[in-house]
Amino acid sequence: MFSRLSYTFREMWASLRRNFTLTAAAIITAAVSLFILGLTLLVLRGFDNQLSQWSGGVELIVYVENDATPEQLQVVRDALESNPAVIDVDKLEYLDVDASLAEAQRLFAGDPETLQLLTAENIPTQFKVVPQPDASAELLTEIASSYKERLPKVISVAFPSKQIDVLSTLRGVVQFVLYLITLILLFSAVLLIWNTIRTAMFARRREIEVMKLVGATNWFIRVPFMLEGLIQGLVGAVFASGGVLTANWYWTSTVQSFPPDSGFGAFVVTGNYPQWVVFWLIVLGMLVGAIGSGTAASKFLDV
């Protein structure tokens, strides 16, 4: 068992060194593609944070004071529900103090000072309103504009700004382009790893011939090559992860130094989402390596 392991690692290491240039190309391609994928995931997450307030077709938010009583809230709700032709009553959602605080965490992630000012005692709660699909925008505006005067404890009613519309279009474009680039680069990484392994096997065809003649199993012959590809993918993923974490840290600290009204306050990613991205980059890197080397090792074993 031990001699098998040491054989496997010795051969793998020797081969990695012998094929240095090709190996480097494969690792760099894997790293770049995974880095772009990581950035894509973070950027999309930033978009989602920025857009989170308005997700799910919400087009109107009614902010209510923190100290509204259940009866007062019911009055607001009744008013909203009295217009089922314009407002989709089933999708009407009330965010209480806890839910509003949680949302603020995302919305003001890049603006810690504002975030600090919001507490369970002062944060407004909110009704999120999704209009009926065929309701006219004017009608919605008309109804909503009367709320502030007519209803108790309503602070304000908000509509999505033009900026939000632009952002959500932009998100779609960014998602499409970056995913496409990632896919193409990942595919070239697989091809490069495949080619590295093919070259490595060709360089060792005499050894492989002897191994087959003396009765080494195909798996025994294959495993060092597959491991070699796996490690190329893994090393690429580690570089990519380092790059992604650094880029995210740099961007977050940049956004936090923007003025509070920059409009980018939510455009950062915090919490353990970056770790989650890194985890998947590593899994994907190893997968890319395993696919590239596994197919090569099976195909070229009959040398």
Binding site: S3, Y7, V214
Partner: peptide, 10 residues
């Protein structure tokens, strides 16, 4: 080599 690749111990 012939023994190594069929897993014979050192």
């Amino acid at each position: 080599f012939a023994l190594e690749v069929i897993g014979r111990p050192k």
